[in-house]
Simulated assay, not measured.
Amino acid sequence: MSEYYIRQPEENEARGPYTIPKITDLIESGKADRETLYYDEDREDWIPIVESQSLSDILFPEKKHLNLRAKEVADTINADESEARTVTVDEMLAASEGRTEDTKHLKTKGTNMERAAAISLPALGVMMILSAISNIYPGWAIIQLITEEKDYLLLLQHPKLILGCLDAFLALCCFLAVTDAFPVIRFRAMVGLGYFAYIAWSWGDTNQLIAVAVGSIAAFICTITLNLYVMIVCAAAGILGMGALAVFSIMGS
């Protein structure tokens, strides 16, 4: 069954994925309406439900007025039941699984979005682990000193270590499928891009500058896209960029 991510026009965070019956329940409870946005994979954009004729017809079916004459009712009642088309169980299952011509495109869209969502969390987890290594490894001696002397305030003098601990925590959130951490990861990616890119630029280290830019931008995109192909490219680029940063840090130490 097809699933959709939805959000209100004034909201930034998406909800879902929801099946059609679940969205119908939200509409009946007043938590969604015709202006609610859903993610259209073909357009790669959020559009109102009302702009999709097929989806709008399903979620907001027109209420037809019953206006039958007596003869029409009698003809329907007396009609030969053998003329009615029989729907088999196999046909019902095929429709629900998106194997019919009418529902095949819906199944494909839902499957691609599900695959993209499934890739994002482990990919981001690996990126954050590699970023944590690049920030923590050069200061490992300082961590040992803090542990031995129990002077934890010393950690405040080393912002990269604090950032590395945050990266490790965000990696744990990703591996535990905590999608609420996505806004923090986006913020972390942009702060890291500005801070570390400036340092690499000031040092004239082009390789590190490129690695920071690729890893940070890819991590940011992985938290906002549900396009399968974009997700695959960004996941690979992000892991490569963060991995290069970790290698540079280890070699530099």
Rank of each mutant, 00 (worst) to 15 (best):
M190N: 06
A218K: 02
A84K: 10
L26S: 04
N67E: 13
R15I: 14
V247P: 07
L59D: 05
Y152F: 15
G243D: 06
R15A: 15
A200F: 02
T24Q: 12
G238C: 05
F169L: 14
Y39G: 04
E83V: 15
G98T: 07
L68Q: 14
K22Q: 10
M242P: 04
L121W: 07
I217H: 04
K150R: 14
T24R: 07
R186C: 14
A94M: 13
I27H: 01
E62F: 07
Q8G: 07
Q157T: 15
I20C: 01
E35L: 03
L106K: 00
A14N: 10
D205P: 05
D75I: 12
W46E: 04
D45P: 06
L156W: 11
V233G: 08
G125M: 04
S249R: 00
A132H: 05
D151I: 05
F248R: 04
S2L: 04
G204L: 07
H158P: 08
E44M: 07
L193V: 05
P17S: 06
V233D: 06
A14D: 09
N78Q: 15
I58H: 07
R43N: 12
L153H: 14
N112V: 06
T88A: 10
L153V: 14
Y4E: 00
L130K: 00
N207I: 11
D180N: 14
